[in-house]
Design a binder for these strands. Structure first.
Lengths: 225, 225
DNA sequence: TTCATCATTCGATCGTAATCGAACCATGAA
DNA sequence: TTCATGGTTCGATTACGATCGAATGATGAA
């Protein structure tokens, strides 16, 4: 037990209500200021600052300072993934109802998972992209095929957009409500960005829900054939 | 924040060193007695009993009473999955070295993940089974093909073995060291069982390491072509 | 410079969770 | 019955972490 990975340290960081509320507030991938996070958790600024320092120290959060504003965001997608898994367990305990996943149908349909699309539509995107051989590779190591790049270009995501990023291009992320995988990684992020820019979807304020317009969903399905 | 899934409750349960040590000790899928767990965590029986009651209450553990022995095991594979994810984060924080995953090469090669095989060999099994169309389906919903049942029968796993289980037959589990998927679910469990029975591999006591004999690994690779 | 705002640090308080000794309960063996 | 063992409950202690008021640092605007 000496120098092994200290799982309890990480879990304890998430295990405080104030901190977990702040982490949940960051699950949409945005960066929030200390005051906003204090608000989200319902605590004073001092207390928030204390907790944020701990989260920074544990490298669950990253901070970016702009003038007098300090912006905090999840340090990486792994943190978001851990929170999704814990959400899944917590839900199965408290909910105790037959169907898995979030209660709100809207959340189950489409939501943001750190910085990419999750829910029914997220799984649909991943499935269709696999079925049409736009993606290749088993398990978590997934790559875009040449055919896939053509399709992505049609929607405004180009290879050069991602070349200078250190993040893995594609990853899969286990979907909490669907119990299947959806697309994460830079491609997943850029894709969602395009959905927003094209007006196909927008994020409901203060929630993780992503709402597709009728037209937007139709366009998406058309793109996926 | 009223009645939503309480992620901090779950995380706080894992976030105590004594409890996390007990959970880690159970990651090999076996069921251990209260005394054994007290030992594993380095605490007295009373304290262990206190923690075990909390873990039961939070439904992270399940208890089975046999005479005066109380056996504890992880309540389900989701719990094991959550711990693997946290292990991954903790490792990336403390280790800070380039390569991901456990330090010990043996652990990276083959280890037990809740009740199935993980590590390089675990990923190999999954990849080969997919490549030969013994498994089908994208994401986490995976099924054994007719061709796959033939191959599984050759190694002693038959369809009838699993018919009366409520657990999903096949699941994929994200491998902490490899960052790829390996096979979980009942099939993954039965498969590992066969590896043990055939003497291809054995678990090193007090560790999660699974050691394949030279002959055993050769037999495994032959089975996978 | 002065002022307002955003954030962190300090200090003190408070509550609660972890711990263990001791007692108690249940089971199985003698 | 008695005894030994595995496990839980009770009670008291202890220590640590969360919280907030107040003070201190920054930054940007007037």
């Amino acid at each position: 037990m000496k120098d092994g990975p200290d799982i309890s340290r990480i879990a304890a960081l998430i295990g405080d209500p104030a901190r977990s509320n702040m982490l949940l507030a960051l699950m949409d991938g945005r960066a929030l200021t200390a005051s906003e996070l204090a608000d989200a958790a319902g605590i004073t600024k001092q207390t928030a600052s204390f907790h944020l320092a701990r989260l920074l120290d544990g490298a669950l959060l990253a901070r970016e300072i702009q003038g007098r504003h300090h912006y905090f965001r999840l340090d990486n997608a792994d943190v978001g993934h851990a929170i999704e898994v814990l959400l899944g367990i917590a839900e199965s305990r408290t909910g105790n109802r037959a169907r898995t996943g979030p209660k709100e149908p809207a959340l189950r349909k489409a939501r943001i998972c750190y910085d990419h699309l999750a829910g029914e539509l997220g799984v649909l995107v991943y499935d269709r992209m696999c079925a049409q051989r736009w993606l290749t590779g088993a398990g978590n190591e997934t790559f875009v095929t040449p055919k896939g790049w053509v399709a992505l270009k049609r929607i405004g995501v180009t290879k050069s957009d991602l070349s200078n990023s250190r993040r893995p291009q594609c990853k899969t992320c286990l979907d909490w409500s669907m119990r299947r995988h959806h697309l994460a990684g830079v491609v997943g992020q850029k894709l969602l960005e395009q959905f927003f820019e094209r007006g196909w979807a927008k994020q409901l304020p203060q929630t993780r829900i992503i709402e597709f317009s009728k037209k937007g969903e139709a366009s998406l399905r058309k793109w996926l054939n």
